[in-house]
Each structure stands twice: as C-alpha cells, then as structure tokens.
Design a protein around this nucleic acid. Sequence first.
RNA 1: GGCGCGAUGGCAGAGUGGUUAUGCAGCGGACUGCAAAUCCGUGUACGCCGGUUCGAUUCCGACUCGCGCCUCCA
Length: 470
Amino acid sequence: MLTLYNTQSKRKSAFHPLDARNVRVYVCGPTVYDDIHIGNARPMVVFDVLVRVLRRLYPRVTYARNITDIDDKIIARANKNNESTAELSQRMVVRFHEQMDALGVLPPDKEPLATHHIDAMIALIATLLEKKHAYVAEGHVLFHVPSMPSYGALSQRKREAMLAGARVDVAPYKKDPFDFVLWKPSHKDMPAWPSPWGKGRPGWHIECSAMSNACLGTPFDIHGGGIDLLFPHHENEVAQSCCAFNCTNMAQVWLHNGYIVMNDEKMSKSLGNDVRLCHLLATYPPQTLRYFLLSAHYRQPTPWQEKALKDATRALDTLYEAQARLAAVAPLKDTPDSDTPDSDASISDIQHALADDLNTPLALAHLHRHAKTITKNVTGAPLRAAVRAFRDAQDLLGLVTLSAEDWFQSNTSTTTESIDETFIRSMITQREEARRAKDFQKADELRDTLYQQGIILEDTPQGVQWKRRR
RNA sequence: GGCGCGAUGGCAGAGUGGUUAUGCAGCGGACUGCAAAUCCGUGUACGCCGGUUCGAUUCCGACUCGCGCCUCCA
C-alpha cells in the first residue's frame, strides 16, 4: 500500500488510483530560459522516485512532465541574447535533458511543450468564455475568479485574507483583483499566435490545464511540483480545469516538495543565490547529487551546503564498497529471490519506506544497514534481504547503479584531473616489485607519488585496487 | 496583516508515549610491512514554559526563534 501526503487535505492517506489499470501523474517541469539550479532538480528526482515506485505497484503508469517554452522570462532572455525564443528554449531543453539523464532521472512518458499545445489552450479558453467563467478585456482574456465559489480550496486561502495582503496585482481591466490572465496580447518583439481574441500568447497557468488534459485526461491521479507553485499556479490550474471539464478536482492527490535553502533563505534565481546543476555536475559525481537530494524527506526544507555533497560522496563510497563485495558473492542480476514472491516478506524495507510518503531518508538508512551485513560477510536470509535491498536501491531510488569500479575510478571529482590508466598500472607493478623485494621505502614513495596525483592504492586480498581521491 | 511549515547529538537527518534510527565527522582498538578499505568499541540529542499521563523528544496549550506563500519562482 502506498500512502501520500496530500497538500490539499494536509494529511497522509492511502493512495487509490482513479483507474488502477493506468495511474496518471503530472509534474510541472522547467521553464527553459536558463540552466536549472539544484533546487529545481529536486522535484525532478523526487517525482522520478515516485513514478518508479508506482511502476512497481501498478501495471501501467503514465507520467507527464511539461516544458514551458513560452513565457515572459523566455521572451526577455531571448531578446537580450538576440535570438528567438525557439532557439533559446530548444538549446535549454537539450541541456536540461542531458542533466536529467546524468542524474538518473528517467524520461517521462510524455513531455509536452507549451508551444505545441496552443490550439488546445485556445479551445480551453473558448470553453471558459462560453461557460461565463472568463471574459475579454482590452485584448486580454481573464478568468473570473468569483465565478468559481470553491476557488481557494486547494491552497486553503480565503479571499478576504488574501485581499488584506494588499499584494495583489490590480490591473485596471480586471473585474476582480483575483482574476488572472488566460490569454494576453503580444507586442512587437514577442512571439504571437492567432486567436479569436487577436494575436497573442497564453497566460502562465493555462498550459498545464490544457496539456495535462491532453496527455492524461481530467481528472487524473497525482499532480506534483514545488511548494511555491501551490498558489497561485496550481490553484489557478484547478480553477481552469474544473470549470472547463466539469469536475470537482483536477487531480485527486497534490504533492509539493520543499525548497533547497541557502543560508536560511530559499534558493532562487531571482534572489541570486542559486547553485547551478551544470556547475555541480562538473565537479561532483551525478550519483552524489542524487543521493543528496534523496537524503532528506522531500517535503522538508533542506539546507544547502557544500559539505553535504562530501558527506553524500563518502556515504556512497560505503555503499559501493558493499556493492563490490555483493557483486562477488551474489550478483544482483542473477540472484533470484528465494522467498515467496509477492509475500510481504519479499517486499524490501526500501520499498516499504518509499511507500510511506516517499521516506527516502529511512530507505537510505535501511540500505546502509544492509551494506553492513554485506561487509560483515553475513550469509543466509540477511544476505538475501540485502540483495533485494540493493536491487531496489537501483530500481526505485536510482542509486548504486554504477559498478563499484566505475564509481571509484570515475573522473568527475573535485581533486583530480584526467589521468593515464596505463601509468597507474605501471606504477602499481613497480610498487609490487618493490614490495616483493621488501623495499618498502621505494614502495611507499611510489604510492605517495600516485597519491599526489589523486590516486589512492589499496592492497586487498584480491590484489591492488586503485581509487580516485576525493 | 492573513495563512502555513519547522525547531532532534559537531553537521545532516528519520522516527517513536516507555527499550533512543541512519550517514558523515571525531576518539580508542583490531587488521596491515606501513597505509587504504573493513571490522569492533565509543557519543544517552530531541527550542522554552506549562498541562495530560505511572511515564513525553513524541499528545495538548502558550511562548521564543527561523522559514515559506499571499508578485515571477521547484
């Protein structure tokens, strides 16, 4: 059984799909005007784990994650760069895909682009106008919030309370301060699409209503995104979708991840305190970043600090040490479960932890305990459980997916440049000769030389192993 | 101003009404020619004040502090 914390009900409850034959998930993807930062990467990794768990539990899952390739930030950046919005967004999409791939984020089943769904948006807006939930004013089409009595139900805000905030944009053409734009006119330097209301472009929220409906139908099971999207973005999506498609809710479960926090402050590009994923990927192994993002519960605000990546790397070292030993005694791919399939005992504690609202820190704690049983050479049932746990770590968490050799010798590292493997081998051979001759001084000099170049030697019963120093 | 979230050992981070995860770091030991890796041992933490209870870090209330949303935002 899977339980999830629903932002709307503010509690954990058992997940029951609307259609168990096809579980449908939608996650708000990136706006491709610039490289993403580590905080942006969090929902990508977290909901990747969610989808992996859902695939374990249900025969079919349809996962849609959109790309916003038209919006005011993209327009502004493209103009600044002297390129078209299409050129800019396509370039950023390529980079985004490369980075997701590096992080082990599996591609979604559907990845709709906003610019490919303009027709659907226009149709949706027309429906809202027809149903008197929207109106035209000065070239804009606006959603009329008072036309929807239940507006605010998702984020549980009261109209009066929000008005008191006095931070609501009150454009003169709005009938109500909360009305929001569905369609807006484009000016000279802006991309524009023809519509019944003149040439223009969509508002921010409409794309998700149109694309989730196109990809999944409405309502669907799970809608995810960062907590900052709860209001107004998701609230407005609900308004659009429910009013257009006649349903009481757009998605039955709403999941929101917390922020990565920089010095007690939300990490964001507008605050200028963001750490780019591409920079981190140039310095740290991708598995380290993934481990970091899964080492805290997804709903908790999580402090950013460079040290955390060092810790994550060391923790992965421990896991890969165990994995190397496991590979020697019980290859993951070839070891069948000896426990009864489908019995409760055959479900790993990793899976149990993840099924409880994606408790990834607990899952990692379990994994470390299994690693310990492996390095302690325990056999029998505990070893079988460890094999299962490591398999689930790969399949569900997307961790420990490399060979130990690749992990320890990969050259994405803070301290090493690329180095000649032939040279390492020859140094190892020379050192072995010196050791056989009991010339330990020379042997240690050779080892030190390699150490200076970022290579650590280990004398194991199976022979000399080398690792990169981190 | 409104609404919401959080406060756990050096750092990170789960969890639980009573037996106190996990990782990283530290310290002592074993192993090793010396190391590395590994193993063994080692740290009685839960913001403050009340209340409920035989017993609270865990439940309730007040307080303090921090953060977030109400505007673009993962």
